[in-house]
């Protein structure tokens, strides 16, 4: 492109529209992060489901998979940052949403692990305790540990939030559809047992992240092939 060529108004408009289009078409999500989290959360949820169904315990908590997934995520983020020569406004906003989501999930895990024990401690200090009483008298009464009802439903609700934001901001239909289905599944999970919530959680991870991630990946690879 030369510089000092005299411009007509139509040429000016053409430059503006073509460059804006160029900038819009320049960035494609590789889909790797969505695939990674879709796999990590769905596998972890399914393993917990299997654990409860078959009544055995894995040597380590299956949800460690989700924490371990942070390592490849850091690698993917650094690689993408290196490859992307442009930062779009919506990408910066979406990245912020996912970062806040990550912090919120970590704090929710913390809450789920700390709050019941602290509540039990406060109750004991006040001189009372929760008792599990079997209506048919089949077992004797026993002290009960405070618990958060349908806890995994909260995670399902939280999984849906950044998915919907990303889908709407990027006008990416698979994530919007995934998000809407996940809201319905969240309502369902309020009526199901913890075991089935795990199954629902796995489905949510697949429809919110894994499937959209695979779609993004195929688009990205197609784009790269066309650029070669």
């Amino acid at each position: 492109m030369k510089n000092e060529t005299p411009l007509t108004e139509h040429e000016s408009l053409n430059i503006i529209t073509s460059m804006i289009q160029n900038a819009k078409a320049s960035y494609h999500d590789s889909g790797m992060s969505a695939i990674l989290w879709g796999l990590a959360v769905s596998i972890a949820s399914l393993l917990v489901y299997v654990q409860i169904t078959l009544n055995f315990t894995f040597p380590i908590d299956p949800f460690w998979i989700v924490f371990i997934a942070i390592i490849p995520q850091i690698y993917i983020s650094l690689k993408e940052r290196k490859e992307n020569k442009v930062v779009r406004f919506e990408d910066a906003a979406i990245n912020a949403v996912w970062s806040v989501y990550g912090i919120t999930i970590l704090l929710l895990v913390m809450y789920a692990n700390i709050a019941p024990a602290v509540s039990k401690e406060f109750a004991n200090q006040e001189g009372w305790q929760l008792i599990k009483h079997y209506i048919n008298g089949s077992k004797p009464d026993a002290e009960m540990y405070p618990f958060i009802p349908s806890l995994y439903s909260l995670y399902i609700l939280l999984y849906t939030f950044p998915t919907m934001v990303t889908g709407i901001a990027k006008k990416f239909r698979p994530m919007i559809v995934g998000g809407i289905i996940s809201y319905i599944l969240f309502i369902m999970s309020c009526y199901t047992s913890f075991k089935n919530d795990m199954l629902i959680g796995a489905v949510v991870a697949i429809i919110c992240w894994l499937i959209p991630g695979i779609i993004l990946r195929s688009k990205y690879l197609k784009q790269r092939k066309n650029n070669v």
């Binding site: 510089n3 000092e4 411009l7 503006i16 460059m19 900038a23 442009v86 930062v87 910066a92």
Partner: peptide
């Protein structure tokens, strides 16, 4: 100017490039 307008049109739609 052709090039400066092109640069500004690119930058108006992104955070940074």
């Amino acid at each position: 100017s052709q090039l400066r307008l092109a640069v500004m049109s690119l930058l108006i739609s992104v955070k940074e490039a």
